[in-house]
Design a protein around this nucleic acid. Structure first.
Lengths: 254, 254
DNA sequence: CGGGCTCTTGAACGTGATCAATAAACGTGG
DNA sequence: CCACGTTTATTGATCACGTTCAAGAGCCCG
């Protein structure tokens, strides 16, 4: 558990103390188990928790009046969502599981307590929102300016990378559990057109479809074909401002 | 100055103490003056500051290899940008002034000091990133799912509202200093097509063009025509978690 | 065996892009 | 105050990327 995706991903943002890690461990006890296709959140509904995915994939999306959907982002193991509920006290999007998923729920009350006792840990949660910003910028470019093939390619390459980050050994095979409907809802395209683009990608040996979802076969070539530059996904290692965040954890008080 | 846009906007997020306000006042002394059309930041370049717009408008955008641009957002008086540099130590976008602008620059060092002495104030800065998230969700829906007319309408209605937030009296007229190029770069459309849509909007008396930019004449009707729902722009007033953020400011230590 | 999902295919259509040319507005220096 | 270069707005004709609608096939799971 100490080497779970949750720890790995939050540790990118802030240097957790052993006490902070233990505290986090307690926060993650008793997660919600969510079956594939089940909804966890409905947009506009009151919400007083933030969430952290322990395993499985979920999608965050907006439901449009005309029946359409826009996927705002996916959440993979180790990723946080629902931070905005701290400000808005409601959910800004719906959340639905793509696969069976296990999701830790941290109430605002618990988060406030964390803020007091382990400000660094709390900051790590807030900083995930900052990091999300970088991803959203990339998506805006994708949706606004790139043709369908590149849009889909960028999505796949980003998700493959994020999926790899939550793995223990970075060389394991990665499968993206996406349907063509998810891809369409996320790239602003329609299912039939996504289907046609995927056929091209398969013909070019960029990827293949399996029972567990799709697999990138040749990420390098695909990245070149699509002009993908992934530096926005990696935080400059050990930013130094974290050293200045006071940590009034037990070890320092005693 | 105590009633400047900067104070008004940050106070939406956190309850600033008088000491915090004074400290902020000091942070905002000696802003950078930026002439219209001048660039302040270049994407990928190292950056060790965060910024707060005191007056004027700027755009944050990405420059594409093919010469195109995608505007990621605008920043109006009272709004913060460059928070991501805390994590990435570089700028993720270029920043250029639309009008003459005055911009406060807060180095990471100064921000770290703020974090120690006025954690609430520092939190207010971090929370602007959370609030931005809500805006980016809306933009993703806009870019991914809405036709040109609605896209442009949503942009205008959001910006008009944000512009109004930074005014002392909320009933003053608001002018959006946008060229058709800005609108195109932001909505993922082309300039000629934006032009055609604007002609429709003018024909329908939704807006007019003046020397200071465009003015919304009938926001209500335009909002209905475009299905605009602005609740994502307003924070649920006085979230209660802020009361639990420790503030080791002078008044409480003494 | 039946009912959803998911994937696939075809034909016609339309929103918005592209390219090119012109006109108007503006600021700046001579 | 005018001349000029630059930025911004406008218009037309053509083109294409991606949509729409509809139908059928495969598949998984109860």
């Amino acid at each position: 558990m100490q080497d779970s995706p949750a720890f790995r991903r939050l540790s990118e943002l802030i240097d957790l103390t052993p006490q902070g890690r233990n505290y986090l461990l307690a926060l993650l006890a008793s997660p919600v188990e969510l079956a594939a296709r089940r909804k966890l959140l409905d947009e506009h509904r009151p919400c007083d928790s933030i969430f952290l995915v322990l395993s499985g994939w979920v999608q965050l999306f907006r439901q449009l009046k005309d029946g359409g959907r826009q996927v705002l982002n996916f959440r993979l193991p180790g990723e946080v969502f629902g931070i905005e509920s701290l400000l808005y006290r409601r959910s800004l999007y719906s959340c639905q599981a793509l696969t069976n998923a296990s999701i830790a729920q941290i109430s605002h009350n618990m988060f406030e307590a964390t803020q007091q006792e382990f400000p660094r840990l709390a900051s790590a949660f807030l900083l995930t929102a900052v990091k999300d910003g970088a991803i959203h910028y990339e998506w805006a470019v994708n949706l606004g300016r790139r043709p369908a093939f590149q849009r889909i390619a960028h999505l796949f390459l980003e998700l493959e990378r994020r999926a790899r980050m939550s793995l223990a050994s970075p060389d394991d095979d990665v499968h993206l559990p996406l349907t063509q409907q998810h891809i369409a809802d996320c790239t602003g395209l329609t299912v039939p057109y996504v289907n046609r683009i995927l056929q091209q990608m398969r013909a070019l040996q960029f990827l293949e479809y399996g029972p567990q979802g799709l697999t990138i076969l040749d990420g390098k070539r695909l990245a070149v074909a699509a002009g993908f530059e992934p530096d926005y996904l990696e935080v400059s290692w050990q930013t130094n401002w974290q050293r200045h965040v006071p940590e009034n954890a037990p070890e320092e008080a005693g």
